[in-house]
Design a protein around this nucleic acid. Sequence first.
DNA 1: TGAATAAAAGAGAAAAAACTCTTTTATTAA
DNA 2: TTAATAAAAGAGTTTTTTCTCTTTTATTCA
Lengths: 143, 143
Amino acid sequence: MFSKACEYAIRSVIYVAQKSRDGVKVGIREIAKGIDSPEHFIAKILQDLSRKGLIQSQKGPSGGFFLDERSLKAPLADIVRTVDGDEIFTGCALGLRQCSEAKPCPLHHEFKKIRDDLSHLLQNTTVGEFSTQLDKNRLFLKR
Amino acid sequence: MFSKACEYAIRSVIYVAQKSRDGVKVGIREIAKGIDSPEHFIAKILQDLSRKGLIQSQKGPSGGFFLDERSLKAPLADIVRTVDGDEIFTGCALGLRQCSEAKPCPLHHEFKKIRDDLSHLLQNTTVGEFSTQLDKNRLFLKR
DNA sequence: TGAATAAAAGAGAAAAAACTCTTTTATTAA
DNA sequence: TTAATAAAAGAGTTTTTTCTCTTTTATTCA
């Protein structure tokens, strides 16, 4: 469904969101431990998200990653699109480049619903909305 | 969503299904042209499906691939499961190994619906059911 | 029976994705 | 103003996926 990079990106950002709500910046090592992922790999991914403004960062002592108000309200779709492109939102299930209403692949019509549901889910879910449930151990980001 | 191999597999099998309805066997070169895919690559994939009985084949002159009655009625889910495993049917959206009702990832509950819809679609769609629409150029398998 | 045909099998090469390690740059605070 | 810290950047390696080429085996039919 999503690439590994994208899975890590979503988990990282949700992890950072939770910490940010308490005004805490968090280092890459802690994020890696918090979501059980390869440290250097997610470093690259977060650098990318940072450059694109989906996550904030600060260098130096007491630095780390955090999310500003705006980023906390961003939909997960933004993260997915940045890491994986919009294949998942618009691509053909069978890989046809020109699949469309006019020239549909065999799965086109049925698949549209599923893709749309997925799009809406990702578009209507924000990065910051899981903090409370994570605090209460009703949701998990690792294992 | 699906791997390239799986996309080609589905397109190949649907292509062969259409020909099989007319009792025609079809060679790998024709399939490759018919679905616009790399010939040797799909050869491997079809060999695998053949070993597992999801497609039939015959060597030698006037040989080729075809589908028997049973295979024509098989759900697309069988093809997907054979090529890509059942990650897509049961895997966690965020890549957690132990994601479950009891220990859900942040997307678990919402995602379940989408995954279930996808499962049902693939389970209720048979390999052979597109032939008529393909004949009428209402559906397409390449480009 | 033997030449032609077509899938099966073997053995890769190329490209992409996943992951690692090292060096550099920016920032803080003592 | 310097030592420590932490992200950014650069430069890989490893693994997986995608794709290719060659040889072998089975089958047909002339």
